[in-house]
């Protein structure tokens, strides 16, 4: 059954509380991930992608972070309600994660092979020798030459790209059901990037893992993903089949992103292509969070917050444009003038 849901996130909210106020970094995220499927998450820097993925595994540093609301269902079981003990059995085993920061995410004083092997011993009950061999095997798999030698080295002896591949090997070692990859290939050059993506797809085919793929790179989305969630200001604003989103983006924000696709290749780091600025997470406007930058904005957009509504069979969008209220609002404006 390829359509089985492995991971479902409902109304996830994580806020950061400090003396500056409350930053609503993740503010009501919903999505489903099916077995063997890749869900891409795209959005501008700071929109809450990383915080969403960290929230899933309860890795948000607290304080200042605070889980506010929501459910994270892995095969129907809510991770939010689990004890730390139970959650530890899931971390690195059923759900693993590749972090955005490859340079600092490996322990500087432990040989990289051991950093992979320890998870294997823990979750798969392998002996020291077996775990080490498997670890070397994983390092080979992600395309690092002379893996036996590399496994014994410490991170400072490896290049940035190699470290990121070690992270990938670590995340894949225990054949997780869900892989959360936070910009896994940003630090790599194009050929290695393609190679890594191939490895991930390959493993996905073999073990049917679901992947949450966070990226800035719409090209990679087109190549890798089945579904796409577009995030803006702590929320999902559009959730689509990947093949549809490029042809027919619904949300004005997505339209902005897609419309400037060629530009994106010039500067893959930043998605700063739409005029205006993102509202501060400390102080979101009452209505639509995109209203200030949206060419279609009307009265209702500024007054009331849109919700994520079903549009057609397999699309969701958070925009008044696709509602009946929109028509009323337009009509009113016409009447006024």
């Amino acid at each position: 059954m390829m359509n089985e849901i492995v991971l479902e996130v409902k109304n996830l909210k994580t806020h950061f509380i400090s003396n500056k106020g409350t930053a609503k970094a993740v503010d009501g995220i919903d999505f489903v991930l099916r077995k063997g499927e890749t869900l891409g998450i795209v959005g501008e820097s700071g929109c809450g992608k990383s915080m969403t993925s960290l929230s899933i595994l309860r890795l948000i540093p607290s304080p200042p972070g605070k889980f506010v609301d929501g459910e994270v269902l892995l095969n129907g079981k809510d991770l939010v309600k689990m004890s730390n003990e139970e959650l530890r059995k899931i971390r690195g085993n059923q759900i693993s994660m590749i972090f955005q920061e490859p340079m600092t995410s490996l322990n500087p004083v432990i040989p990289v092979g051991e950093q992979i092997a320890e998870a294997l011993r823990l979750h798969q009950g392998l002996s020291r020798k077996q775990a080490w061999d498997k670890s070397v095997e994983m390092i080979r798999l992600v395309g690092i030459p002379s893996p036996e030698k590399r496994a014994k080295q410490e991170p400072f002896q490896l290049s940035g790209g190699m470290r990121q591949r070690i992270m990938i090997a670590m995340a894949l070692a225990c054949t997780p059901e869900v892989l959360i990859a936070d910009e896994p290939t940003t630090a790599l050059d194009v050929t290695i990037q393609a190679q890594i993506l191939e490895i991930m797809k390959d493993l996905q085919r073999k073990i049917g893992m679901g992947i949450i793929f966070i990226t800035h790179d719409l090209g990679v989305v087109a190549e890798m993903c089945d579904q796409v969630g577009v995030m803006y200001a702590g929320q999902i604003v559009e959730h689509r089949d990947a093949k549809d989103i490029f042809n027919n983006p619904l949300h004005p924000y997505t339209q902005g992103l897609i419309g400037s696709l060629p530009k994106l290749y010039e500067d893959q780091e930043e998605l700063q292509i739409i005029e205006g600025t993102v509202p501060s997470p400390y102080d979101y406007p009452e209505g639509c969070r995109f209203a200030e930058r949206c060419p279609f904005s009307t009265d209702i957009c500024v007054q009331k917050e849109p919700s994520l509504i079903q549009y057609g069979d397999n699309a969701k969008v958070r925009c008044w444009k696709y509602t009946n209220e929109w028509q009323d609002s337009l009509a009113k404006e016409v009447l006024k003038s």
Binding site: S96, L106, M170
Partner: peptide, 10 residues
């Protein structure tokens, strides 16, 4: 890297 260690389930 401590976050990584936690994410591994240690």
């Amino acid at each position: 890297y401590i976050r990584t260690a936690k994410a591994k389930g240690l």
